[in-house]
Design a protein around this nucleic acid. Structure first.
Length: 466
RNA sequence: GGAGCCAUCGCCAAGCGGUAAGGCCGCAGCCUGCAAAGCUGCUAUCCCCGGUUCAAAUCCGGGUGGCUCCUCCA
């Protein structure tokens, strides 16, 4: 397996710290609002990574955190009158449900900041003890970036002319503008506080990931985990800071490889809250089935920017339709084993830094060839079994193609309408039998008006929602 | 101001020094009562200008255009 390492800035052979095992930690969402397409893309990228590694026989341990302590959450608490827990639980549940709809495998470990305070506290204490962090009069604790000789090596940022970047930064008592808060002491009017030996307060943002990784992964003398992932915007300062903290607290590197996914853009601009151009996943899911959204969102290589647009989505859906039409042709069947060449083609593509474009072209080729073979031998049972096995492999590796094809083409069609459609088709079949083609064509037009496409086969007439 | 990324057929999109995958759309054919679906065939020399090389979309330099990070962000 080759992956692109953001630190080395090139594609490298993935060599796990433990034979045939892969530990992956991905930065998850801060749960104060609904997930947008960017969250979906990040989750999908690393879902594909995990699925690919599993197909390559790695034992994958995947962790994705929920940041449930944060200023934006606290702000929402104050505005809404709801408790912090109410708010975070609500958005976590929604996040999970929406990611489930996209066919994203649940992570093995899903730590929360509120459940990791012991680890956070412990790591901060270690950093203070080692002289890598300092506490100021207010009680805030800062990481001393100057104490880490390698600070900046992750994002390749050197020089000290950059602005301060701490997440929660109300006093200018930092020794260095790059220093960032590990712990924020409770101040006047702060209601969300946790009591620790550091005093009453709450953790800064960056520390939670480092602490959670230490808590949940055993690591080795050289690295805590194999792969750390997240959106490209997290490379600096978030991941740089994580790397620095972990390095100083543990004496070894946090992750052997760092992977970052590109942005989802709307009209050529990064989607973000501040620009007000967020496209929420819930809205997308209201218009499109999760599987189609998944197919569309994974169709562009994870490192590239993704420009979301509904016309492209519809074009991609037509591609997915073809897979399901093939599936319709082979059912009922039981799966045997996928074709050797097909499996190799798919895995080779995905093992090359998740080259989804090539993988999808391998799928397309399989679909076309299978249709051709079925045209020649419509009753070849062994062939049908192999095709079904191929489709099951697609589902396992890429996460689509698992639906019943008849349901797929009739998604969202009400039962009464379905009856009406079937009645019209029956009438049309009768008209055709009588060679009354004018009547048959009228009925077909009526069906088209109902949003239904029909196709005649020797076995009968099939229909699809347009 | 500092640091990166990107630019391939009308559209989406691979390519990682060896002579341009795939999909959508379009056209033609087979099939069909006609369609649809399916299958087959057809459609690009890679933003511009230099350079390195036997060989460059791929490497280097310079432009132009777009995006991002340096502040919360997937």
């Amino acid at each position: 397996m080759y992956i692109y390492d953001s630190v080395q800035k090139k594609k490298v052979l993935f060599e796990p710290i433990r034979e045939k095992e892969a530990s992956i930690y991905v930065c998850g969402p801060t749960v104060y609002d609904d997930a947008h397409l960017g969250h979906a893309r990040s989750a999908l990228s690393f879902d594909l990574l995990a699925r690919t590694l599993r197909q390559l026989d790695y034992k994958v341990t995947m962790a994705k955190n929920f940041t449930d302590i944060d200023d934006k959450i606290i702000k929402k608490v104050k505005e809404s009158g709801r408790s912090m827990r109410e708010i975070t639980e609500y958005y976590i549940d929604r996040y999970q449900a929406e990611m489930d709809a996209l066919g994203i495998c649940r992570s093995d470990i899903e730590p929360k900041a509120t459940e990791s305070l012991d680890a956070i506290e412990g790591m901060i204490a270690k950093l203070i003890e080692g002289g890598f962090a300092y506490q100021i009069a207010s009680g805030d604790v800062y990481f001393a970036t100057s104490q880490d000789a390698q600070y900046g090596s992750l994002s390749h940022r050197v020089g000290d002319d950059e602005e301060a970047q701490s997440r929660i930064d109300h006093v200018g008592e930092k020794r260095n503008p790059k220093d960032f808060a590990l712990w924020k002491a409770c101040g006047e009017g702060d209601e969300i506080c946790f009591d620790t030996h550091l005093g009453s307060g709450r953790p800064g943002w960056h520390i939670e990931c480092s602490a959670m990784i230490e808590k949940h992964f055993c690591g080795t003398d050289s690295y805590s985990i194999d792969i750390h992932g997240g959106g490209a915007d997290l490379l600096f300062p978030h991941h740089e800071n994580e790397a620095a903290q972990s390095r100083c607290a543990t004496g070894h590197e946090l992750a052997k490889y760092w992977m970052h996914n590109g942005f989802v853009q709307i009209d050529g601009e990064k989607m973000s809250k501040s620009l007000g151009n967020s496209f929420f996943l819930k809205d997308a899911l209201a218009s499109y089935d999760g599987e189609i959204l998944r197919y569309y969102l994974i169709s562009v290589h994870y490192r590239n920017d993704f420009n979301f647009n509904e016309e492209d989505l519809l074009a991609l859906k037509k591609r997915l339709d073809k897979l399901y039409r093939l599936k319709k042709r082979i059912l009922p069947a039981t799966a045997s084993l996928p074709s050797v060449d097909f499996r190799k083609g798919l895995l080779d593509a995905m093992a090359d830094d998740l080259n989804i474009s090539v993988a999808l072209s391998v799928v397309d080729e399989m679909v076309a060839q299978s249709n051709e073979k079925l045209d020649a031998n419509p009753k070849d049972k062994a062939l049908k079994k192999e095709i079904l096995a191929n489709i099951e492999l697609i589902d396992a590796l890429l996460g689509f193609g698992a639906k019943d094809p008849f349901e797929y083409f009739q998604l969202g069609v009400e039962p009464e309408l379905k009856l009406q459609i079937e009645k019209l088709i029956e009438m049309r079949t009768g008209a055709k039998k009588e060679k009354d083609f004018a009547a048959a064509d009228t009925l077909r037009e009526e069906l088209i008006r109902l949003g239904v496409a029909i196709m005649d086969f020797p076995e009968g007439t099939a229909w699809e929602k347009i």
